[in-house]
Design a protein around this nucleic acid. Sequence first.
DNA 1: CGTATTTGACCCGCGC
DNA 2: GCGCGGGTCAAATACG
Length: 188
Amino acid sequence: MDFYFGNPHPYPNIHQYHAHNSVVSMTPSSPEIALSDYLMLDDYVDHQDSRSSQSTESSEKATFCDPTHGFSTGATSKNNNMKCKNGINENKRGVGPRIAFRTKSELEIMDDGYKWRKYGKKSVKSNPNLRNYYKCSSGGCSVKKRVERDRDDSSYVITTYEGVHNHESPFTTYYSPISFVHSDTTFK
DNA sequence: CGTATTTGACCCGCGC
DNA sequence: GCGCGGGTCAAATACG
C-alpha cells in the first residue's frame, strides 16, 4: 500500500487543510490502510489524544505548522523535546516548515512520490524506537524527513517532513496536478 | 561494479 | 567547560 502525494506543492495534502492548527478528517479510499493522525511539531511530546482504537476508521488529522502562520499544537512550551526558538516552527537552519503526521501502518517506508535516501538512524530518548533520517535524493533538493514509530502505539508511524521540495514529485508527471486539488492522499 | 544502506563517529546547540 | 541529546557524515558494507 503505497501512499503518496502527487502534487507540486511540497505538502499537497496538508495545505488544503486550513492553514494552521486545523484538524481535518478524511477518508482514504483504501480500507487497508487506516490513518489516524495528526501533526505535531516542535512541542510534540505527549499526544494522548490518539485514539488508537479507530483502526478501521480511516481518518487523518493534521495540524499545520508554518512560520508564516505561527503554530500551536496544544502543547506549547511544555517541554523542549525539540528545540524550538521563539515557538516558531522553523528549524535552526531555516530550511523551511516542518510537518509531521502519524500514519497507522505496518510499514515505515511509504512511497510519497519522492525518492528518499536514508542517511541516518538514531535512537532518541523520547522514543524507545529508532528514528530514521531520509533526505530527498533529487539533486539540489534538501528536503528531509524523519520516520519513527509512535512511542505509545507502535502500530503508528510518525513521519516528519522538513523543508520544501524545489522540484515536483517525479510522480506528478503521470497525473495532472489539478486532479490532486481535491484528491488529497491517494492510495493504491 | 555502481548505487543504496548501515552504523559508529563526529558535530553542534543547549542546559547546568 | 562539560555532558547530553539529537542530527549528519562518511567509510564500510550490502545489494541489484
